[in-house]
Design a binder for these strands. Structure first.
Length: 482
RNA sequence: GCCCCGUUCGUCUAGAGGCCCAGGACACCGCCCUCUCAAGGCGGAGAUCGGCGGUUCGAAUCCGCCACGGGGUACCA
């Protein structure tokens, strides 16, 4: 496969969510899998919707996911600048060329008139598009512009039909009569997306435009601009959108989480990348868990699905757990510092083997480790003694455990376990039921890290305290019950 | 309204005329393992391949129509 040179071109209007980034991932994989390049370009042509902090958030998101870009903000490159508001002269120049070749024309129609016109067209069941009133009166328009009247530049959509061979959809065809004379230059002098994207993709030598499905209807406009400028258009690859559980396009407004929020909760970049890759793409094999390198090796544009995918958070959970367990233990120790900030390196090293099989996200380490790091928080809802364990047995078990620790400390935990098991069996209580008493005593809940490991972690003194406290609680509860 | 794209288990998907009365993964259920919870192993349930008509000896796979879903329809991207 020839090297693909592609780009991700977000607009700084908000934070990135899974839907946006999944498209970026496909573009990145296309570039990396062919030894091509990945360009990042900021499309800030809409002054009104600009959100200052979003640009930094976009870079942070991509950096966190390690979706590295070869050219773009921060790293520069031979085709810069990579921010559209810094490239205005270039758009103006090409707008001039389009006017000269009559591929575009000026329009002074007011927004009010345009709205009215569209309403009328809808009433008549016609395709909504500009009626070209100004095209027929260009001399007047020129005079109006000279007099200072606000104007926009419109693409003069040619006759005929437009079709292209889309990399994921195959042939797509439009009748040009259905397509509007798109505004290319707004009255504030800024280009619209349509002009800027074509000029930049050509100037930046983009070979494959990999973007979301929702751009399909404007592609004929882009193709018309390429033709008018005498340029060879790139390969278009319209990837399906990512839907939420209500089958609507993922969007911030509808409560889609940002990728950075997943990061805070302790989702791994590798897992996010893996999960996103599986939304609308599959390798064709039965492999589901992929490292970044494996994805690069397996990825091809041809295997991108053409139908939209519903994002399933549980699939992400499953993949995240899998990737956590695949992680190098030392890397996990390091990653946990963010979630367990008060812990020493040494403490985390002892914790990791106890936690790693029990976490969906790294943040789950907090409740899991809590009873080991601080006082055991007794769950107020906890049933104690637990079901299937009579008070007498619970009491005997706690007494025996206290005696064991008092006598031998925590050195013979395995032998202690065996003796306690024997005690339970002698009373006709299954170990699986009986040991819950110990869990509640030490951890405050019947579920969590292995109890003997927990005792070893907190030490003999605290273990004794908790066993005794539990013993006291038991007496109290029995008293209260009677 | 007009235009485009799409439609295989709840979800993500495999499948490019016979290998499919449809395979895998997540979720769900059960069993095993087991000091709890997990993790792991094994098994189960779950899709008349949106519907209807065609083409063909044979269709999830090709064609047509319909339905449904999504998207576009802006001096937003």
């Amino acid at each position: 496969m020839a090297p693909i040179r592609t780009r991700f071109a977000p607009s700084p209007t908000g934070f990135l969510h899974l839907g946006n980034v999944r498209t970026a991932l496909f573009a990145w994989l296309a570039a990396r899998s062919t030894g091509g390049s990945f360009v990042l370009r900021i499309e800030d042509t809409d002054q009104g919707r600009y959100v200052p902090e979003s640009e930094a958030a976009i870079l942070e998101t991509l950096n966190w996911l390690e979706l590295t870009w070869d050219e773009g903000p921060e790293v520069g490159g031979p085709h810069g600048p990579y921010i559209q508001s810094l490239r205005l002269d270039l758009y103006a120049e090409h707008a001039r060329r389009l006017v000269e070749s009559a591929a575009a024309y000026w329009c002074t129609c007011t927004p009010e008139r345009l709205t009215e016109m569209r309403l009328e067209q809808q009433r008549l069941h016609q395709p909504p598009r500009y009626d070209r009133r100004c095209l027929a009166r260009q001399d007047e328009v020129a005079a109006e512009r000279a007099a200072g009247m606000p104007a926009v530049l419109r693409l003069h959509m040619p006759e005929g039909a437009t079709q292209w061979d889309d990399a994921v959809h195959g042939t797509i065809r439009y009748e040009n009569a259905d397509i509007d004379d798109q505004v290319l230059l707004k009255s504030d002098g800024f280009p619209t997306y349509h002009l800027a994207v074509v000029v930049d993709d050509h100037a930046m030598e983009i070979t494959h435009v990999i973007r979301s499905d929702e751009w399909i209807p404007s592609t004929p406009k882009h193709l018309a601009i390429y033709a008018a400028l005498g340029w060879e258009p790139p390969v278009f690859c319209h990837v399906p959108t990512v839907l939420d559980e209500a089958r609507q396009k993922l969007s911030k407004r509808r409560g889609a989480k940002t990728v950075l929020e997943y990061a805070e909760q302790g989702y791994l970049p590798e897992a996010m990348v893996n999960a996103m890759a599986l939304l609308g793409w599959s390798s064709g094999t039965e492999q589901e868990v992929f490292s970044r390198e494996e994805l690069i090796a397996a990825f091809t544009l041809e295997r991108i699905q053409s139908s939209p995918a519903v994002f399933d958070a549980r699939r992400l959970d499953s993949l995240n757990g899998l990737h956590i367990r695949r992680m190098d233990p030392e890397a996990l120790v390091a990653a946990l510092e963010f979630h367990l900030p008060e812990t020493s390196l040494e403490a985390r090293r002892r914790l990791v083997p106890l936690l790693r099989e029990r976490m969906v996200a790294l943040r789950d380490a907090v409740p899991l480790a809590e009873p080991l790091l601080g006082p055991a928080p007794w769950d107020p809802e906890v049933v104690f003694p637990p079901r299937k364990v009579d008070a007498g047995t619970a009491q005997a078990l706690l007494d025996a455990a206290v005696a064991e620790v008092e006598a031998g400390g925590l050195d013979g935990l395995e032998a202690m376990r065996e003796r306690l098991t024997a005690l339970l069996e002698a009373r006709g209580v299954k170990a699986r039921d009986g040991f819950r008493v110990l869990y509640i005593a030490i951890l405050g809940t019947p579920a969590g890290v292995p109890v003997f490991d927990a005792m070893a972690f907190i030490g003999a003194e605290k273990s004794l305290d908790r066993l005794r406290a539990a013993r006291q609680e038991l007496v109290q509860r029995i008293g209260a019950a009677e």
